[in-house]
Simulated assay, not measured.
Amino acid sequence: MSTVYATEIVLPGTVDPDGLLVTTRELPAPAAGQVLVTVEASGVSFAEQQMRRGKYYDQPPFPFVPGYDLVGIVAAAGASVDPALIGQRVAALTKIGGWSSHILLDAADVVPVPAGLGAAEAETLVVNGITAWQMLHRTAAVPRGATILVHGANGGVGSTLVQLARAAGIRVLGTASPRNRAAVEALGASWIDYRGDVAAEVRALAPGGVDAVFDHVGGSGIVDSFGLLAPGGTLVSYGTASTRDVAGDSRLPVLKLFARLLWWNALPNRRHAHFFNIWAGKRNAGRFRHRIAEDLGSVFALAVQETVRPQVAARIPLTEAARALALAESGTVIGKVVLVPALEA
């Protein structure tokens, strides 16, 4: 195998987007059980926005290469890996490391991408699709005919969640800004202006309450989200976006949120509250990998059928990751910003 040099985007500390560094390093040959992946697309998610502020709950110490997920082609395989993997397009959930031109991964962690699904399109469905699918079908187990509220219905997870819910015969109310109203309605949701009286709008559309609320905002608004649940309903919290720019200990908002959810679950109110963590259960590696592959495979299948349409907000060269991160943080996009090789941008 010839020498491979990876171009990587390094997050050196708590910097503005233009403080990201573009570096190059030599990669070793894949070890036993590993594959070398030539990255075709990597996403810009809310996790990276928090990481650059040092506010992602369990991020590694600086410096490191961010990149929560990726799609690419297997270029080489180590011993004990099926050589048939070489040349296949695969997806992987990485948490860090995805903002690179090449990466070494455990072969057990890659999921095949079906034919007919482009790299950038598939990339938008990796962490977003797994998160949305598991929250909807595993955590909340929302049945057909139910009504749910999705906050941030124009975002990466939100837009995917809306489509998965509609595909499952679930009515969706979705919050977003007025500029994103048409896009949210095109996905099949009833739009609600997040800047208005959301609670009143939801009660007008669902007088008995909603069966589930999916809330990435956190903060004080989580109380309203829980209050909008119908008896037996489920609140799924999966972030604390409202505290992204708040100074202080990054763990405190999360711990406060956990405490509130635990308190609600202890009350005899017949409503449920959960915090979704995509990495929960990772200690049981075999089961965790099976669920990731099964759930992502289900999302990919819906995309191939065009039941779910990937929302690519923009394709930006890897070496311009600073611009991509700034765009993702602007709150003006529908779907997900994707980093791609320069020739594909």
Rank of each mutant, 00 (worst) to 15 (best):
P28E: 06
V223W: 05
A322K: 05
A79S: 15
A321L: 10
A273P: 00
G13F: 04
K55C: 01
L27V: 07
G248Y: 07
T14K: 15
T175F: 05
V142P: 03
A165C: 04
N277R: 09
M51T: 06
Q50G: 11
G239I: 10
T3S: 12
R291I: 14
K336I: 09
G233M: 06
D211L: 07
I222C: 15
P114H: 02
L255N: 13
A266M: 08
L261W: 14
P61G: 13
G248E: 15
L36V: 10
L325Q: 10
G218H: 07
P310F: 14
V126Q: 02
D16F: 11
G239H: 06
A75S: 05
S2G: 10
A75G: 08
T240E: 13
G54E: 00
R323A: 15
G156A: 01
V90I: 06
G221P: 01
P143N: 15
L70S: 05
G43R: 01
A182D: 15
Q311P: 07
V39K: 00
K282E: 12
L149R: 06
S237K: 07
A189L: 00
V10T: 12
A79M: 00
W99P: 12
P268R: 09
L161C: 05
W133M: 09
E185Q: 11
Y56V: 10
I9G: 03
A345F: 03
T14L: 10
L318Y: 01
A314L: 01
G232F: 04
L164Q: 01
V113S: 00
D58H: 08
A47N: 11
V22T: 00
I86G: 03
G33V: 07
V198D: 11
G72F: 00
S298M: 05
A321H: 13
F214G: 12
G19W: 03
V157L: 03
R315S: 12
T307R: 08
R271Q: 06
A132S: 12
P66W: 02
P310E: 11
